[in-house]
Design a protein around this nucleic acid. Structure first.
Lengths: 153, 153
DNA sequence: CATGTGGTTGACGTTAACGTCAACGTAAGG
DNA sequence: CCTTACGTTGACGTTAACGTCAACCACATG
């Protein structure tokens, strides 16, 4: 049995668990979103009757989901990666297939990092450009100020 | 005037230019997509009558668009970044605003790179795990083979 | 001239990833 | 017992980013 204390939930074995709203607030999403993730097979919280109860493992999963989203992955891509990570390390053929998929993932991640680096370089160029203009503007203003204070003497 | 030679287009000043289908094929997208990007204000090809003519500058833009997409940006985020890069470096206040926006972009890019790195680490763990299982399986198979060849003697 | 190739606009369809809302259940507290 | 907070399922709405299709235009070629 699980007892509810205000907002969060605790199970008998002392391990912390969370209600849907609580988890949603913590991660800045809505409970609707958590239900969608469950429908898509990305999360499988336990139930207390009809209510969903999330444990630490679910939280880890959720963090991975949100990281995937930040990297622009679709929910099904995220599920595929879970399938990859969870796969039971069975036969040789399966393992080799898995390794090739992992290699492919790595390559796209590295390509993405290259994209980021080049975007950061572009950004750097624009930024130093802007800083230069700013310095020039400030220099001009300084001149004007010095001229004005000189005229007052 | 632009003359059409088979698939691609050349202008009088000798600078290369491209038709919509040609460009689409080269970048692995459809012409429909190019028109959408234009509607969204991300591209502005010249026209020869009604026909779109893309120049080198348009191609650079397109590369930036596709890089943005690979990083998971929306079209409007991409447009914002263009606006940022194209802004005319006018007054001081505008420049300072621009710098703060650039700084913000940089932070999200760096955060994204951290996400990638941690994803790569996870991947590395799973991979060495799988390699280990594979070695064990092969070792077992080797034993069996050696046993079998021993039995044949 | 007919046909093919490649382009145009405009309208409508589609998919993913949620948001929104209605109708209802359930436990705690006053 | 009534209210309040929190949860449930189910249905429908919405937005972005295209795909698909129809009807049309323009040029080159056999």
């Amino acid at each position: 049995m699980a007892k509810q204390t205000g907002k969060h939930v605790e199970t008998d074995d002392g391990k912390r668990s969370w209600g849907i709203g609580e988890l949603a607030r913590e991660f800045g999403i809505t409970s609707r979103t958590l239900r969608v993730y469950e429908e898509e097979g990305l999360l499988d919280p336990q139930r207390d009757g009809t209510r969903r109860i999330y444990n630490e493992r679910n939280r880890v999963r959720l963090r991975l989901i949100l990281r995937g989203k930040r990297l622009g992955w679709s929910l099904s891509e995220i599920r595929e990666s879970f399938d990859l990570y969870d796969s039971s390390l069975g036969e040789q053929a399966q393992l080799e297939l898995m390794l090739s998929k992992l290699e492919q993932r790595r390559e796209t991640l590295i390509a993405q990092r290259r994209d980021i680096d080049s975007a950061l370089q572009d950004l750097q160029r624009v930024e130093s450009n802007a800083r230069q203009s700013l310095r020039e503007i400030r220099a001009t203003q300084g001149k004007q100020q010095r001229a004005a204070s000189g005229a007052r003497q």
